[in-house]
Amino acid sequence: MSIKKRGEFWHIDIQAPDGSRVRRSTGTTDKRQALEYHDRLKAELWEMTKLNKKPKRLFEEAIILMLKDAEHQARFDYKQAHAEYFLRIFSGRDLSSITGEELTNSIPNFHADTKKQIANGTKNRYRSTILRAFSLAYKMNWIDAVPYIPRYSEPKVRVRWITKEKANLLIHNLRLQWMKDVCFFALSTGARMSEIFTLTWHNVDFVNRVATVTNENAKSGKARALLLNNDAIELIRKLRLRNNCEYVFTRSTNRRVYDIDRRDFKQACEQSGIDNFHFHDLRHTWASWHVQAGTPLYTLKNLGGWETLEMVNKYAHLNADHMLEFANNVTFTAQRSIGNTEINVSNG
């Protein structure tokens, strides 16, 4: 039998039915366990060759695929946390043996630290992470199908925007100058918070008036151009004169900013009479202003870096002017003349 002890562990040397050789350590010092591993592997090799059976793949291998795929995407830390969570449940399992029901039941319902109930939106992020792992495994031909995990219902998309007058008042009431700059830039470009605070001077093109959001900082994981309008380019030029940091937006100490000053933002909203307003709503405001000014939705999609047109349809109701010209193409009644008499005719 092709099993020998080398050093501390037993090793096997098997010739597969297709003529290839498999040489590896069994990882055990127990001869009985090594023999069992030898026989099981030999049987699997026969099934793979003669019955076209897929080789056994562990759950961990699919997780590694997912993490490699996501390593340059925004919020990679979320994916890592999700990976650690699912590994605690399915580590060591044959990937093809895990069912959709098991995966559905594994989605957490409560936060481990606070014991508070997890929102459906967060559950859907866990769902997306694990489905991505199985989808990549399917593309690698490791499994025959991707398990089904039902999506959790979420509240309708919240769109909150303010007028230009309110926006000016908000910026005026901000106490910190760097917060004024950040909010002004967000309203001028529609940039996301992560895109603003990771923007470096290296990625600003003053000549072509464009800033590049690199793939590791873009939400979609794909680099995109952030067009700088007159307001944005004027602000950027002023910042360049007083900024020696690698990053565009800094504190007065010339140190990089990682997050907004939430206290300053909240107080400015209260002083401006703006309720239920978050920093991300500045992006909604920018998009709403564009639609009201007549910017086509497809153009807005590209300007804002949304992946699908469906993501910008939530702003469509803000300007229906472009549809009014078609509204009278069909009317309920029409006037027809017979001789010198006018009569109303129903089109129904």
Rank of each mutant, 00 (worst) to 15 (best):
N208S: 06
L87S: 04
R336F: 08
I236W: 02
K314V: 15
V210R: 09
R160K: 13
F326I: 12
R251N: 10
T200M: 11
E325Q: 15
P150C: 11
E310L: 10
A293C: 00
A62Q: 05
K180M: 07
E154W: 05
S337L: 14
T198R: 08
V312N: 07
I196A: 00
A327H: 06
N347A: 10
I130Y: 01
A43K: 15
E36G: 01
I63A: 00
G348P: 00
D275P: 03
H202D: 12
V207Q: 09
N347C: 13
V182D: 03
K164I: 10
N217G: 02
A293N: 09
E71V: 10
N229R: 02
F76E: 06
R88P: 05
R32C: 03
L131D: 02
P296I: 00
K116L: 11
L239F: 08
S91K: 14
A327W: 05
H11P: 10
E195D: 11
L35T: 07
A232K: 10
S91A: 11
Y315M: 13
H72T: 13
K5V: 00
L103I: 09
D264L: 09
K156E: 14
G27Y: 03
W289I: 02
K5G: 00
D69F: 03
L174M: 13
N347G: 08
S337I: 12
T104H: 07
K54Q: 15
W289T: 01
S20D: 08
I274D: 05
D281S: 05
R6P: 08
V146G: 03
F59L: 08
R127C: 06
S106P: 06
